[in-house]
């Protein structure tokens, strides 16, 4: 286990800044193992950027890099995202 690992709650503010809706209750389906789950429960690793990983299989769900003026998001590892609107 990585002691520096956090979870989706830790990036709730950043995600809401980008998507303009509360995202920790959004349900994502992993592009690797197909397991669905709330964004609040994914594993989060923070370094130069932010990496979101599937808590079931470890697949990289998303990568996020933020600068002062823009946010770059790679969502390759997420098959679907259900958002309550």
């Amino acid at each position: 286990m990585d002691e520096l690992m956090l979870d989706g709650n830790a990036v709730a503010g950043l995600l809401q800044e980008v998507f303009a809706v509360e995202m920790t209750t959004a349900v994502g389906t992993c592009g690797g193992c197909g397991a669905p789950g709330p964004v609040g429960a994914v594993y989060v690793y923070r370094g130069a950027g932010i990496v979101l990983r599937c808590p079931h299989c470890g697949n990289t769900l998303a990568k996020i890099v933020k600068s002062a003026s823009r946010v770059w998001i790679d969502l390759t590892g997420i098959r679907t995202l259900q958002v309550t609107v």
């Binding site: 989706g8 709650n9 709730a12 503010g13 509360e22 920790t24 209750t25 964004v39 609040g40 429960a41």
Partner: peptide, 9 residues
């Protein structure tokens, strides 16, 4: 400050 944030926990 900005918030409230989160809905899962």
């Amino acid at each position: 400050l900005r918030g409230p944030i989160g809905g899962y926990f």
